[in-house]
Design a protein around this nucleic acid. Structure first.
Lengths: 213, 213
DNA sequence: TCCCACATACCGACTGGTTAGTCTGCCTGT
DNA sequence: ACAGGCAGACTAACCAGTCGGTATGTGGGA
């Protein structure tokens, strides 16, 4: 066994996915994770074999199981990366010193840009969530809920202060917006007519317009 | 071989998924498809084995492969059912004799209700699209595009006549709304606080508000 | 300085289990 | 007697994870 249970659990909270906890990702581990991310996004988690990943990364199974406890750990790492990034950015924009409609617009637009910039991760995130084991699934759901609630708080703040329409549940508005974010992986193409920033501005604009009292 | 290539292709256009083309679904075939739909939605396509499906339906593999050419055919049948249903309903509302904002509102709300009423099918639809073979994938994409374009035409009509804001690409608005529809499978719960109709009214309202000039 | 003990990094053959799909044949109604 | 409907054992392929082994590097004692 390369990692015992305790170490695997601990890994989930570290930054680099190697479980060494010192922030310095070993090149091989980094390459394996990057390769897995690409293949998972292209073919789906279940359709990507461990053999394919190690072949594409130019190593063997020995290397993969040296750095990761299981195939699922790779998936969990992708999730952790996305969640931490998005939460950090949301907190940044939500805590800013600006009117609530500006903070919401900035946060809403930023999540779109960030999602497009990491489209592979996001495709995996939304498609393969239900492939996680109950334990890891619970953890990911908890982090997602935290994100959702922070976003909802922004909307409720605007509703209380009268700058947003209050006759609609804030929860529903959050899901409305994140539906469109979620959906980006299905339709957005890099070679399409719109830049990520343009898409973000349009989608944030739609959200703010829908919330006009 | 139960079905040769030609028959499998023909099946895609029939109504009952048994390939007999006479509209009378054999009970066993119907039960297999219903069981598969439920299991695919619960566990995902790849995680559901053919053995599980036939066990849950109370038959054996012999029966399944008597009625369906492959496991993928089951998936394709689910897709066909959903696509035909949604297209039919969209055409109905879009062709109605009413102002464009009313037609759009009705169509937008109806797709939400229909989606919630067939949540299993929709979950499968959005999660497992990329599991289809290239040939069937192409066919499904073509039908989806037809749907998308009909919906977009409604928005463009309103933009031309000045009742909708014209400073946003209609394509993007369609994806915005369908993002939220797509997302329903992730968050909507039957035992939640909102009825399908309430959700539909809210989401249609958000769309129409966002389109106010 | 040399050398030994030990750890880390990785290899690749192997195992036990699972899977989609096939095939032979029985059974029943016409 | 013939055909459709179905059973269930079988096969060939595949897959995640294991394990014994090798190579490389590193710290400490003589």
């Amino acid at each position: 066994m390369t990692y015992d249970e305790g170490q695997v659990r601990a890994m989930a909270g570290t930054k680099d996915g190697t479980g060494n906890g010192n922030g310095s990702t070993k090149p091989v581990a980094r390459r394996l994770l990057a390769t897995a991310t690409r293949l998972f996004a292209e073919q789906g988690y279940d359709r990507t074999s461990v053999q394919e990943i190690v072949d594409a990364a130019g190593v063997t199974k020995g290397a993969l199981y040296h750095y990761f406890g299981s195939k699922e750990d790779l998936l969990h790492e992708v999730y952790g990366r996305v969640l931490r990034l998005q939460q950090e950015r949301l907190d940044h924009f939500a805590d800013a010193d600006a009117p609530v409609e500006q903070r919401l617009r900035d946060a809403a637009a930023d999540v779109v840009v960030t999602t497009i910039d990491n489209l592979d991760d996001t495709k995996i995130f939304f498609r393969s969530m239900h492939h996680l084991s109950p334990e890891k699934d619970k953890q990911v759901r908890a982090e997602r809920r935290r994100y959702h609630e922070r976003f909802r708080a922004l909307i409720e703040e605007g509703q209380r202060s009268g700058v947003f329409a209050a006759d609609i549940p804030a929860d529903l508005v959050v899901d409305y917006h994140f539906g469109s974010v979620h959906h980006l992986g299905t339709w957005y193409r890099e070679d399409g007519p719109l830049t990520p920033q343009q898409v973000a501005d349009h989608l944030a604009d739609l959200l703010l317009r829908a919330l006009r009292p």
